[in-house]
Simulated assay, not measured.
Amino acid sequence: MDFALSEEQEMIVATTRSFVENELYPHEAELEETGVLRPELRDALKAKAIETGLYAANMPEDVGGAGLDTLTWVLYERELGRTSYALHWNCVGRPSNILLACTPEQRERYLFPSIRGEKSDCLALTEPDVGSDLRGMKTTARADGSDFVINGTKHFISHADEADFVILFAASGEEEGPRGKRKLITAFLIDKDTPGYTVRAGYKNVSHRGYNNCILEFSDCRVPATQVLGEVHKGFEVANEWLGATRLQVAATCIGRAKRALDLAMQWAVDRVQFGQQIGKFQGVSFKLADMALELKAAELLTLEAAWKFDQKTVTDMDMAMAKLKATEMLAMVADEAIQIHGGMGLMSDLPLERIWRDARVERIWEGTSEIQRHIISRAMLRPLGG
């Protein structure tokens, strides 16, 4: 097994890290203090990302993206993850791969403008009374002639305030399943200015300042059938293909932040002197560093293996669940221990550690909670045995 990176991969890692450190790091303090990513700053950084070739790097070459394989894309996401979500997501956009399901006409209207940085998308699955149970969603899409009429509410929808259109999932019918009736889901592309579609401010939260969550309301929102993404009643098939990749993305960005936290902790262990010696020479600190490095390496190897298997078309849901679970829980541990090593200084906003610590909390919840990941893993283990 070859663990070495290719020359191209090394170049992509170096280019992405340089962009993050030189173009994005300088704006972290402003973002944390104000909670707002200024539109003029966003647009300037977006233009630099496009010029550098980092924008839409997750998309295939034949549609105008960089055409990164999954392993290289994960390495790229790892470097972007070193900074705040508002900066790396809103300024170095990665359009949802679910847009590859667009029809030719939809590609001209949504996919290609998103890749060029002219439009941006958001994805709406979660509802106020529905978390991990997607089949329980209450937002409905009722067929009415050649249109669909949509009613319902979505919440916790990331960066919907920035997005030009939403990829919406709604219940469009029912079918008989092993446990009785279950809802059929359809995906739609809906423009922000569509009558009956309203974007409202979401909830204040501790994680990812400037990267806002929003509430989406649909009241007799009428969209033509040409706005269906994929096939009617086949929204789950579209979503499942997308969800696995996002779990790897979350894992990769967590690894990037953990690496930054560990780097800061290591430097502090060398620079900080107590009782006449560097604190890194005390076992209470040095053993923490060893455990942090061990957990980080384990998470990184799980994530890179899953990405490699994705390219080989051998990846399983269990592989991606393991990567997401390990990386998100590892980040919580590394961020906490990094603050402990810094003492009181770790909680001060002079350092990025308190932000990394706050931001880490949501990672074990969104894109599938830790409990959901454990369910996926355990079911994959037991099912072959008849469990």
Rank of each mutant, 00 (worst) to 15 (best):
H159Q: 12
E175V: 02
D164F: 06
L385F: 13
E337V: 07
N22I: 00
T316I: 03
C122N: 14
G387E: 11
S6K: 11
A4F: 08
Q227H: 15
E23Y: 07
P195Y: 12
V238D: 02
V315M: 05
A290D: 13
Q267W: 04
A338P: 04
E32N: 05
L294K: 12
E176N: 04
L301D: 15
I190R: 01
H375K: 07
K324Y: 00
R355N: 10
A299P: 03
Y211G: 01
A163Q: 08
F3W: 11
L24K: 04
T303K: 05
E175G: 00
D129C: 05
N212S: 05
D121Y: 08
E10V: 07
P224T: 08
A143C: 11
N97Y: 05
L123A: 01
K183W: 01
G64H: 05
Y110K: 00
E77S: 13
H155K: 10
G180N: 08
E217F: 00
Q9T: 09
I12H: 01
S6D: 10
V273I: 15
E354P: 04
A323Y: 03
S172E: 10
A49S: 15
I215C: 09
K46A: 08
T139E: 04
V166I: 13
M137L: 15
S378W: 10
G117T: 11
Q9W: 04
Y85H: 06
T226L: 07
R182I: 13
G117H: 13
E231H: 10
A14S: 15
Y55F: 15
V273K: 13
A261W: 04
L331W: 10
K288H: 14
F165N: 04
I215S: 04
P113I: 02
